[in-house]
Design a protein around this nucleic acid. Sequence first.
DNA 1: TATCAACTACCACTTAAGTTGCATAACAAT
DNA 2: ATTGTTATGCAACTTAAGTGGTAGTTGATA
Lengths: 238, 238
Amino acid sequence: MEKETANYSYYFNTLKQSPIFSKIEDDVLHKILRMFHSKKYLKDNYPFTSESTMYNIYVIISGRVEISVMNFDTDREYIIDILGPGDIYDVICLLDKKEHNIIATALDDMELLAAPIEVAREWLYIHPDFNKALLPYLGKQLRHFEESATDLVLYDTWTRLVKLILRNTDNDTGKLSLINNLSHEQIAKMIGSARNVVNRHIQDLKNSQLLSVQRKSLEINNIHKLIEEFKRRNPFLI
Amino acid sequence: MEKETANYSYYFNTLKQSPIFSKIEDDVLHKILRMFHSKKYLKDNYPFTSESTMYNIYVIISGRVEISVMNFDTDREYIIDILGPGDIYDVICLLDKKEHNIIATALDDMELLAAPIEVAREWLYIHPDFNKALLPYLGKQLRHFEESATDLVLYDTWTRLVKLILRNTDNDTGKLSLINNLSHEQIAKMIGSARNVVNRHIQDLKNSQLLSVQRKSLEINNIHKLIEEFKRRNPFLI
DNA sequence: TATCAACTACCACTTAAGTTGCATAACAAT
DNA sequence: ATTGTTATGCAACTTAAGTGGTAGTTGATA
């Protein structure tokens, strides 16, 4: 991307807000940004695929992407992650050269940056800043997937649902962040459950006045009471 | 560790076999190895803990460790990984400084090397070889945990069990490698199921002459027939 | 070689959670 | 406004898989 491009400074500033790029020196970040070009996708489109992530790395500027995997025998789907502004994809393909079987769907209209993955692999060695910034992100991803697997084995659907809600509640605003504007079906696919089960639990939470429910949106009424109920069900879980 | 230590060259050669350390130049590897000291643990002991992995990094020389997480409300346990010679622990704690709640149990008598984790963090920057070698290992870990979570959501217990068996069958010898000498209970905890369920499936596989079963050991009779049965149950899964 | 603990096989039983179906409600598009 | 589409609520039903118990085996160890 040329520095003269209309949105260049917009992209630059967005990256400066991102946890991955924020700590990179400006001159290095300029070098990195110059290798990207921008793309736009409308909601419900597929901004990248199992194939494209073999050859390109993407940085999300605005909007969210749902990353999911399918079992085509049972039509079951599992949403493994929802990425938002500042996130990189696919970090796994950056580290090795195998295919990664996923389906990426835009949850909103979105804008992203793409660069050849081979170029990004070089950054790891020629820009120590980039390398240094990426490592904690890898740690975060590792913890995320380990926790997902752990939760599926150790906790029931109610607990997984409430964990999801609590984890995505913005401490400042009290609103749900990344998982807002999702249907019960999508929420079910995130916690490895079924639409109906999620609906049952949400009704229960509504009836106990812990949640306010509107179409495609949840709001916690009283976070302390919700946590209390959570602890009542899982006393040993901190 | 001093170069003159009795087992120094044994450790050095073991590291040279490991996927992580094998591609590191000898002189760098010597520098790294000098920061380690060796420890021995008997089967069923705890070679490291949630606390100790905050301050030390470990490399396994011989024997296996089972890494698990507990739900103390239900007494359910999930074995998230089994590590063997050449593996590093804890890679997550190397990348960030949060605690990692796990229980590590020696499955065999074992020998390992320990070094201060802060020192290992420096290697990432002062030894590009180490950094370069670690990245694919992180990719492997990421894929491992993502696959674990995915399998739990998308596939039933039979499929998860057979995937575990197939994944751990040595292509050369046809024998099970890391998961050998485990009880049904441990196998159940690895696939997020119950001892009884695993037993049922193993009996079925034995009765269809796909497996030979002995106390704490499984052997595949005919891998082609097993894969055939696997495909019959999961036609779309490659 | 006797004792004990751990592992395995095989029951019968329970249940959380998945499945199906449909009616109503909300929203989106024209 | 009308129509079509998607989301939600709710109830009846099914089932995979978990629970609990017991008896028999095996292997370790005293």
